[in-house]
Design a protein around this nucleic acid. Structure first.
Length: 676
DNA sequence: CCCTGGTGTCATTGT
DNA sequence: ACACAATGACACCAG
């Protein structure tokens, strides 16, 4: 162990809120028309925008705007681009959210293709358009436009190579053949016969393509909110669990399979969470695809059932399901899939509850309901939208992590839930309010009756301690850290093993009383608890020991420095003493030349020397005694002043030779111990 | 193969 | 008497 080199750790803080914040700020700037440097003219309407934003979202704008450096550029879009199609795209560029209706989806798609808007095709149009086209109801305007557009775009495809129209100010981005073909196919789609009842026109969907990592923490927490999560989950959520927080910092996963339990889990949220500010709530509503009432759009349906419009405040504002994006459309599907419930499509049939945005009420949906077909299509669309988010996520979390239980339980939708594999639910659940909820929900779930083996073994909500494959001690055959998995399975505990050590004694005893364990189970549980406690004690002990060692090493360092300082002082004093000795011996020699001082006089002399003597006195020991002993009284001088005044004129040096033994016995002792 | 550091567990002791 | 914490000793593992 060495403390020689200071340990330097480099930390990186990556804000998941930043990108979202920047985008939102840009949108605000756009709305206030601040710092806008480009005007886009579409069908006689002008849109102020930031060239950098447009260029970063659209290939068309990139080509046009990067070729012009002049400020306040006006870009007039060709007739192919309509306000109907362009406006949502512009909004998408600034918000990552695409508002669309069945009517304008084709137009948006056409404009998006023309303008080269990225991130929309696969996630949106390839699925949505056929769906909506099946239902038809597309505006004739769109149809006619689409038809003419196909041929028009073919002509556009042969634009000048740099995408600029040499004849007009309207620059064109070259359209590749595939784009044209796609547009043509859409046209044919739109013209396909309508064999389905028309879908209601009053729905507007919202596609949010903002990255999930941003969505999860984009509650406009600001610093404080970031701190909120860090404080609550921070150190307890190591790298693996970071992913969990990326997905949803407020994630409360329950192993329950019905929505009711999910709801109860959410209802058990921490008061801190419930006390979020209004802005937070409002922003959250936006994040959850639920538009605030200020939205100018029509009745906005949430993209899936159970994803309720909050615009009228129908749901309790403190409902924790609002606080977690995953506790909505996605989460219900995710959670149900995890818990082995039927897939998403079954949720609606099980619950038969949809939210009618027109009446702002829940209504029981009967098979005969005329809106059934509508909701089926919308549900399908919503599912697609919901699923569309997962590839984004899983691509960012592509670290392979074995979690067979999830794969098994989510059989059909397994690929959609890779992110769940990163949830480290075993990481000190009691220290994170969200994971604490999990624990409590687990308890609630188990309730009085015992979980089945499948439940304990396969539930992804169970700690790795209980799931053999992902146990921390998977490498250790005789893992005694948490009881071997085999043992766990043998004793078949009705509660997670990790609870055993984290519980207080009182709770532990209560649980033992409640669960009516067999002697075998009891022994196992107590053994696990004892070892766990001892393990933690050992860790504490070692930490203390290390701290002690560090502290002692620090003290040793300090003492060494002090010692060196004292040695230096000692050496200086030694030199000083040497000087004094020399001076004193000189003085003595001088004295002995002239007179024989008494020992008393010598003592006074020495005292004088040790004080601020104006006259340098040199005492040199004599090799042989030339002086009578101290008891001899041959000289009458009694005071040094008189003595010095006589023998040592001011400024002169008096050498005094004395026997070494005499000096040692008298002078030195006097010098080293001067009288006060 | 040995050394070293980290960790879990057991036995013991003190509180 | 009991539970618990602290700690020394030992074993095991990984680097």
């Amino acid at each position: 162990m060495s403390v020689d080199g200071p340990r330097t750790s480099v930390f990186t803080f990556q804000s998941a809120v930043h990108s979202h914040h920047v985008l939102r700020s840009l949108e605000e700037l756009r709305q206030k028309e601040l710092l806008c440097d480009v005007t886009v003219e579409v069908e006689r309407r002008s849109f102020r925008a930031h060239s950098s934003v447009l260029a970063s979202c659209s290939g068309y704008f990139y080509t046009r705007l990067t070729n012009h450096s002049r400020p306040n550029l006006t870009v007039r879009l060709p007739d192919e681009v309509t306000v109907e199609g362009f406006e949502p795209l512009l909004q998408f560029a600034y918000t990552a959210k695409l508002h669309f209706t069945k009517e304008n989806i084709l137009e948006i798609h056409r404009c998006a293709e023309f303008l080269g808007f990225q991130n929309l095709d696969k996630a949106c149009f390839e699925f949505l358009i056929p769906k909506f086209s099946d239902g038809s109801g597309t505006s004739k305007k769109v149809k006619s436009k689409s038809k003419s557009q196909a041929s028009h775009e073919k002509s556009q495809a042969i634009c000048s190579p740099n995408g600029q129209n040499p004849e007009t100010e309207e620059d064109r981005v070259p359209q590749d053949a595939s784009t044209v073909m796609q547009a043509a196919s859409i046209t044919s789609f739109a013209e396909s016969p309508e064999d389905c009842p028309p879908i209601s026109n009053d729905k507007e969907m919202q596609l949010d393509l903002s990255p999930l990592y941003a969505r999860s923490t984009s509650y406009h927490m600001g610093d404080g909110q970031d701190q909120f999560c860090l404080q609550n989950c921070g150190p307890q959520l190591p790298s693996s669990s970071l992913a969990a927080s990326e997905v949803c910092p407020y994630l409360s996963i329950s192993s329950t399979s019905d929505n009711e339990k999910l709801h109860s889990t959410a209802a058990g949220c921490d008061g801190d969470i419930l006390a979020m500010e209004d802005e937070f709530q409002k922003e959250l509503a936006v994040e959850m695809h639920c538009e605030p009432p200020t939205d100018k759009d029509l009745n906005i349906a949430s993209i899936t059932e159970g994803h309720f419009d909050q615009s009228e405040g129908l749901m309790p504002s403190t409902d924790c399901t609002q606080l977690c994006p995953l506790n909505s459309a996605q989460s219900s599907g995710v959670l149900d899939s995890i818990s082995g419930a039927p897939d998403l499509s079954n949720i609606g049939t099980e619950d038969n509850r949809v939210f009618d945005s027109n009446e702002q009420t829940f209504s029981e949906l009967t098979p005969k309901d005329c809106s059934t077909k509508r909701s089926m299509v919308e549900r399908e669309v919503a599912e697609h939208l919901a699923k569309g988010f997962w590839p984004d996520l899983s691509s960012t979390l592509n670290e392979p992590l074995p979690l067979d239980s999830i794969d098994q339980s989510s059989a059909g939708n397994g690929s959609d839930f890779h992110w769940l594999k990163h949830l480290d639910l075993g990481a000190a659940p009691d220290d994170c309010p969200f994971l604490r909820d999990l624990s409590s929900s687990d308890r609630h779930t188990s309730g009085g009756d015992t979980l089945s083996k499948e439940d304990t073994g396969d539930s992804p909500c169970m700690s790795p301690i209980n799931s053999r494959e992902n146990s921390e001690c998977e490498s250790d055959g005789d893992c005694t850290q948490c009881g071997s998995s085999e043992q766990v399975q043998e004793v078949d505990l009705p509660f997670p093993v990790e609870q055993i050590s984290s519980m207080t004694r009182r709770a532990f005893l209560q649980m033992l009383k409640r669960e009516q364990l067999t002697p075998e189970q009891l022994e196992f549980v107590q053994d696990v608890r004892r070892r766990s406690k001892n393990r933690m004690a050992a860790q504490r002990c070692r930490k203390r020991k290390l701290d002690c060692i560090y502290r002692l090493e620090g003290e040793i360092k300090k003492l060494r420095i002090e010692k060196e300082k004292l040695l230096q002082d000692h050496n200086q004093l030694k030199l000083g003493i040497e000087d004094v000795r020399q001076n004193l011996s000189g003085l003595c020699q001088s004295l002995c030349m002239d007179a024989s001082p008494q020992s008393e006089q010598l003592q006074v002399l020495a005292r004088y020397v040790s004080s601020d003597c104006p006259t340098s006195v040199l005492l040199t020991p004599m090799a042989s005694p030339s002086l009578a002993g101290p008891d001899q009284d041959t000289h009458g001088n009694s005071t040094l002043d008189t003595f010095l005044a006589d023998t040592c004129p001011e400024g002169d040096t008096v050498a005094l030779s004395l026997p070494t033994a005499f000096l040692q016995d008298n002078v030195q002792s006097t010098v080293s111990d001067p009288a006060p």
